[in-house]
Amino acid sequence: MTSCHIAEEHIQKVAIFGGTHGNELTGVFLVKHWLENGAEIQRTGLEVKPFITNPRAVKKCTRYIDCDLNRIFDLENLGKKMSEDLPYEVRRAQEINHLFGPKDSEDSYDIIFDLHNTTSNMGCTLILEDSRNNFLIQMFHYIKTSLAPLPCYVYLIEHPSLKYATTRSIAKYPVGIEVGPQPQGVLRADILDQMRKMIKHALDFIHHFNEGKEFPPCAIEVYKIIEKVDYPRDENGEIAAIIHPNLQDQDWKPLHPGDPMFLTLDGKTIPLGGDCTVYPVFVNEAAYYEKKEAFAKTTKLTLNAKSIRCCLH
């Protein structure tokens, strides 16, 4: 018999989150649709729960009410004593943790798909938090293969000092899905179709896995975050240069030392320094102006996964 890495157990509980950011409308629209008619997301033997994560922000069509829901799922915020004085999103995070967690427990949901849009030209993107997770690498390989020839990129946010504390991190297997470009507060049919297909293929993978299909060893190309880059700023902290036209919409493309990065209003080009080629992502993302992030630098690498098969009882 072929030796293989056996994944822990079959997958039982899956959640699909929309509206973690209330103005990213593809996930909101799909989740609302699936709450009314969820036939397309159901798979035999699998509990799939669509869920609106930040209903107040969705109602106002804004990213958040008090603070970013997708950055506060750490033990400090989840452990705060519940009171009306807490920011709305912290209270909501505790409610979500109660419903789908608790985080880092045996009772937490197996998989959470968190649906997002970006204003950046990132196409279909899967966000991975753990480079050693054979199950998710296999799932992402399946999704990428199923979507081809449509490109699907994998963004690895594993980093020693950049801690995200994402909404989906309460699950055993957290999956971020990011599709763009799409303006905030807008629905685009092409973007919706791409996100819908990503979810379909992900659920198909889980179904095949649960039925005992063995997935042979595989490898995927990923883009691992190195650092986030702020806009150049003046002495008052105001933005002093904008994304250069040569960099705009060039997510995932190589940016070499000396290539144009920013452009000042008086026409001066600010190039990339250093001696390493990087791959920019979230270029000129609207939501990241407040976070002082013009783009993120990534490096390209390959992740390998062992063969996996479900432990059938």
Rank of each mutant, 00 (worst) to 15 (best):
N133F: 03
D193T: 06
G237K: 06
N246D: 10
R92Y: 05
D130W: 02
A148M: 13
L115H: 00
L263P: 00
K213N: 11
M139L: 10
V278P: 02
D110R: 03
P232K: 02
E235F: 13
R233P: 03
I270L: 07
I96C: 09
A296K: 07
D85E: 11
P217G: 07
I143H: 00
L147G: 01
Q94L: 08
E76F: 12
D249I: 02
T302E: 11
I220W: 00
H141R: 06
E76K: 10
C61Q: 09
I157G: 10
Y279N: 04
D104Q: 10
C124H: 04
E84V: 15
Y231H: 04
L162W: 10
D204G: 01
G273R: 14
S131G: 13
V222T: 08
C4L: 12
E158R: 04
D114Y: 06
V58K: 05
L192T: 08
K253E: 12
R71N: 11
K60R: 13
L136P: 01
R168P: 10
Q194M: 08
E8N: 12
D259N: 09
A241Q: 01
Q94T: 15
L156Y: 08
L247N: 01
L35T: 15
E285Q: 09
C311D: 14
Y288V: 07
A219W: 15
K224N: 08
T118N: 09
A165D: 14
F113Q: 01
E84S: 15
G19N: 03
G45D: 12
P257D: 02
R132C: 10
K300G: 03
L265G: 12
A202F: 01
S131R: 12
R196P: 01
L203K: 01
L30A: 03
H207F: 15
G185E: 03
H21W: 04
K81H: 12
E238I: 06
S131E: 06
N304Q: 07
T44K: 10
Y153Q: 10
L265V: 10
I11S: 04
H98V: 13
P55I: 09
T299M: 12
S146K: 11
T53I: 10
C310K: 15
D110I: 00
I65K: 06
P181V: 02
I112F: 03
N284C: 05
I137Y: 01
P260S: 09
Q184I: 12
N246C: 12
G19Q: 02
